[in-house]
Amino acid sequence: MARMATRQRVVISTIGAWLFGFLIFFPILWMVLASFKTELEAFAIPPSFLFFHWTLENYATVQERSDYFHHAMNSIIIAGGSTLIALLIAIPAAWSMAFSPTKRTKDILLWMLSTKMMPPVGVLVPIYLIFKTFGLLDSRIGLVFILCLGNLPIVIWMLFTYFKEIPRDILEAARMDGATIGRELVYVLTPMAIPGLASTLLLNLILAWNEAFWTLNLSTSNAAPLTTFIASYSSPEGLFWAKLSAASTLAIAPILVLGWFSQKQLVRGLTFGAVK
């Protein structure tokens, strides 16, 4: 009896999990499907699920109308660049806060996080003016800079929680073994923190890749990443569902593939070091 009951529960919860997973995945599936439809079919009611005229026409149009690779390159540079620079700043910052905390360390951490609580639109005008003054509007450097600063608090927080888990003794052992602080960072701390670093890097890459507020507001064409590329298809003259879907599918594809191959690291990252 008891075994039957647990079996039933396993079956029910498996079905439940699949349903729930499907529900979450559905919008992406729908978008991908829509990208292969004609514009007419894309907003036909009732919608057709699989039995429509599969076409690659939207992708062709999208590539013709706006240069996908140009935007993709910008996305890679902006997301990648901002993530790498953020990591370079965050590793020593988190290291010092985790291993030589002072009375103010907690306050600094909270203060950093509090900057994330402010809606970015609140500082749009001053940032815009600063960018304008320094000629950073629509430049990749400007976007790398702003996304790096925007995500820095989260990167530092994540690394801090990972570093905190590394036993102090081991770093002290390295110091006794004659390692200078730089070598301690390179040979001991960083290798031990690699899983944490990897998940921080991935998560931050995704955040930066999808960041739409600053990228939309501070870039138009030269530096415009894929977010701008998508946005250009939701125009006021009328929606082109199929083309918008094709653009979006193209935009998320690289990061989706990356995410798929690094699921394990990501799960660790999202649980913020709680899973050993």
Binding site: D169, I170, E172, A173, R175, D177, P191, I194
Partner: peptide, 20 residues
């Protein structure tokens, strides 16, 4: 003088081996 330069070596209660 920092620990690295004192020329002493230490054995910790927790062993503190480098796990990697």
């Amino acid at each position: 003088t920092p620990p690295a330069k004192r020329g002493l070596s230490m054995v910790f209660q927790s062993y503190a081996l480098y796990p990697h």
